[in-house]
Design a protein around this nucleic acid. Sequence first.
DNA 1: CCTCTAGGTTGACGTACATCTAATCAATGT
DNA 2: ACATTGATTAGATGTACGTCAACCTAGAGG
Lengths: 124, 124
Amino acid sequence: MSKQASLALRDLGADTPCCPSLAQQRVPAGTATVLAPAFKALGDPVRLQLMSMIASAKGGEVCVCDLTPAFDLTGPTISHHLKTLREAGLVDAERRGTWVYYRARPAILRQLAALLTVEPTTAA
Amino acid sequence: MSKQASLALRDLGADTPCCPSLAQQRVPAGTATVLAPAFKALGDPVRLQLMSMIASAKGGEVCVCDLTPAFDLTGPTISHHLKTLREAGLVDAERRGTWVYYRARPAILRQLAALLTVEPTTAA
DNA sequence: CCTCTAGGTTGACGTACATCTAATCAATGT
DNA sequence: ACATTGATTAGATGTACGTCAACCTAGAGG
């Protein structure tokens, strides 16, 4: 079930030109249905920090063993949040030996940022 | 209870320089706690479309009477979603005569966009 | 003043979510 | 092969969310 979300987000990159922007035109229902889960995934303080730790990591990736001790939560809970980020298409996971490494998907982040971008001067 | 969220978001604009960006440094727990509700508010397809309709409205504002018929939902449900957007500090409401008009808060949108903005070239 | 209409609020109900403990799977080292 | 460490999965529970039906509030107009 994690694959549909990732594929849907990837496909959306194809049928949208570049920067639709919330404020330029009404986002279609289909686009909203696809992108809302990504925002929802970022709508939790723990996941927002996890996303930031992954995106700002040196080398572009982080071991789960470095993420878990950063919170007062159990390992399974962190794993659950990482799964949510994964299913939202925001991150990728790769197992290398004993540890699992997470990596951000910059394209999706850029797409979400573009959607929220509004003109510097308020449109009259 | 809606005032705390708005004030918290406004305050955050003061103590943060301009564009912290997820990928430049780990977002502090406090910032995550304040901004996550804004992302959560956008994490629903209906609210994402409502936000878009409000932000893209001619004249910068929309009447609720124009928003409600755009969905297969009852009036109270739309009202509830608008309240969620209001409490997240994403929109402002103003009653003028019989109708209530909603207006976007560009500053908050810009802040969220800045947080998600990543470098065009992957940072090593 | 009283009624009508448009919005917003409250309470209730079903579902989804965040979190935990316990069990399972994967990889390394003795 | 066995035990150990790391990560995910499964089951359970309390809380929050989305939705609707019913009620309350505020202008408009007779």
